[in-house]
């Protein structure tokens, strides 16, 4: 969890998102999607502000945020890494790839490296089963990845 103190511009962004959906609590999930796109994550302050506009309890917003794995309360790394853990990738060795990433980056799944460069997550089937095992860094898809290639891939991200 990371604290974000909302500036006026942040508050305005949230207000605009909520107004776009007519402050309708029924659109909470859409609003959270938009807010996560805008902020990169959903820190406490953002959730409180959304609850305020929708006139629902913060507990309820938090309950929804923690239910859906797409929503995150920690900011992602500059280069977010997602390893596909679909069955096809699993039987073709995704776990070894994941273990190698954990070793190299020295973080757990869901974590961010200290310098904020990489974050590591799992996801369920990107639908590129022909390329299994698959990992994504940002938007870029790496197919038929082997554990031995991981170091090279990570090294290619210089900044």
């Amino acid at each position: 969890m990371s604290a974000l103190i909302l500036q006026d511009c942040h508050k305005k962004t949230i207000e605009e998102i909520c107004i776009y959906y007519k402050n309708d609590p029924g659109d909470l999930i859409k609003i959270l999607h938009k807010a996560q796109t805008a902020f990169g994550y959903l820190p406490e302050s953002v959730q409180r502000e959304i609850a305020f506009h929708l006139k629902i309890s913060v507990a309820k917003v938090y309950g929804v945020v923690t239910f859906y794995s797409f929503f995150t309360m920690t900011p992602k790394g500059k280069h977010p890494i997602s390893v596909c853990m679909g069955t096809a990738c699993y039987v073709r060795g995704a776990e070894k790839v994941l273990d190698e990433l954990k070793d190299q980056l020295r973080i757990k799944v869901g974590g961010v490296t200290e310098n904020g460069k990489f974050s590591l997550d799992c996801l369920r089937c990107v639908g590129a089963c022909g390329l299994a095992p698959v990992l994504l860094i940002g938007e870029k898809v790496y197919g038929r990845v082997e554990a031995s290639q991981i170091k090279g891939i990570l090294d290619s991200y210089q900044d």
Partner: peptide, 20 residues
């Protein structure tokens, strides 16, 4: 209608709790 509590998290770790 106090809204202090909600179910949070999912699955085995789900619990009823205040926000955050």
């Amino acid at each position: 209608t106090v809204g202090a509590l909600s179910a949070v998290n999912r699955g085995f770790m789900s619990v009823v709790a205040p926000a955050f």
